[in-house]
Amino acid sequence: MITLLACGYRTIHHEGIIRNRPHGSGNYTFIFFNSRTELKLHEHIMVIEKNTFIFFRPDTPYFYRELESPFINDWFHCNGEELEGFLTGLQFPLDTPVEASDPMMISRCMMELQHIHRLDGPLRERIIDCDLRSFLMKLADLRQRTAPHQLHRYYAAFAELRNDLYRSPQQNISVTRLAENLNLSKSYFQHIYKQLFGCSVVTDMINGRMEHAKYLLDHSEMSVTQIADSCGYENDTHFMRQFKKFVGSSPRKYRFRSET
C-alpha cells in the first residue's frame, strides 16, 4: 500500500521558499511547480518553469528556491514498499523535471487528494492508495502519449476540444473548421488527434452522439426523430443507420430491449 504522509494543494509561500535536502527527504516527494524555480539536482543548477513536476526518490539530494513571489506549488510526500516496483512498471521518470501536458488534471487530483487526506474513516487509507496509484498512472499515460511525439503543447487544447464534442453532441461542425480554430491544417490536426487519443476526431464525434442518443432513449420519452435532431442529425434515417452500425441495434429495439 502507498501511504500518504503529507500533502498540499496550491500552497502559497508569500515570503518565498528555500528547500535544501542534501541527503534527500527520506521519502518519495512529488512537487508540481506553479511558479518559476531555481533547482539544484545532481550538482546541476537549472531554472524550472511553472507547470513542471518532479518526483524525487527518498535519497535524492536537491535544493530549490523561488524565482518569483509569491511562490505556489502542489506537493505530497509518500512511502510504500510496493512503490518503487509500481513506478518501474509505469516507466515513471523519477528525479527528472517533466513539463505537465495537462496542468489542470494535476491540480484537480491534488485538490481531491488533500480533501481525502483531511477526512477520517475506515476506508481512508485504501482510498488514498487508489487515488495515488490512479494519479501516477494518469501522469505516466499522458507522458507516453505526448512526450515521444512532442505533442504535449497541444494536449490541453485538444483535450478541451474533445470534451466539447461530448458535451455538445448536437453541434454540426466540420473537421476543417475544428482545425482552423486551432490554426492547424486539416491533415496535421487529424494526425495529432489520432496520436493523442487513439481514434479519429470523426469517431469521437459519432461516439459522443451515440452516448447522448442512448441516454435519451433510456431516460426520456422523446421520439426517434426528436432524438436524431437533438444529436445533430438532419434526418432520422441517417441517425438510425448510424445508430445500428455503432450500437448494434435500431434505436427502437435499444429502447425496448428490456421488454424482449
Rank of each mutant, 00 (worst) to 15 (best):
F243V: 01
S25G: 10
N20V: 06
L165G: 02
L178K: 07
I106Y: 08
K138Y: 05
M110S: 05
Y254C: 13
P169Q: 14
H23R: 15
F92P: 03
F53L: 05
Q195S: 11
F189R: 00
Q114W: 00
S107P: 00
D218I: 07
E81K: 09
I106Q: 03
R65Q: 15
G232F: 15
H77R: 02
N181Q: 13
I116D: 00
N20T: 04
R57E: 14
Q171D: 09
A179E: 00
D218M: 10
I173N: 02
Q195C: 08
N34M: 07
K40S: 11
R57H: 06
L83M: 03
R19Q: 14
M1Q: 11
K244C: 03
L41E: 11
S230H: 15
I45G: 14
Y9P: 00
V47P: 02
V247I: 12
D59N: 10
F246N: 12
M110A: 04
R257L: 12
L67C: 09
L178Y: 14
E84K: 10
I45C: 15
A156Y: 00
L196V: 05
Y64N: 12
E99P: 00
F55A: 01
S230D: 13
A213F: 04
L67I: 13
K50C: 05
I173H: 06
D95M: 05
S223Y: 04
G198H: 06
E15Q: 12
M111L: 12
H238P: 00
K138E: 08
K244A: 07
Q195W: 02
I106F: 07
D102C: 10
M137T: 11
Q91V: 03
Q150M: 09
S220V: 14
Y28F: 09
F32M: 04
S69C: 12
L161M: 12
P22D: 15
H44I: 14
D74H: 06
T203G: 07
S69M: 13
S134V: 06
T88L: 12
R167E: 14
S101R: 12
C109P: 00
P70L: 14
P103I: 08
R257S: 14
F56E: 10
T176E: 08
I227V: 08
Y188S: 10
S220K: 09
H23Y: 13
S223C: 04
H238A: 14
F33C: 03
F76T: 05
L113P: 01
E99M: 07
E15F: 04
A156M: 06
K194T: 08
Q195V: 04
E112R: 12
L184K: 04
S230C: 13
Q144T: 10
A147G: 03
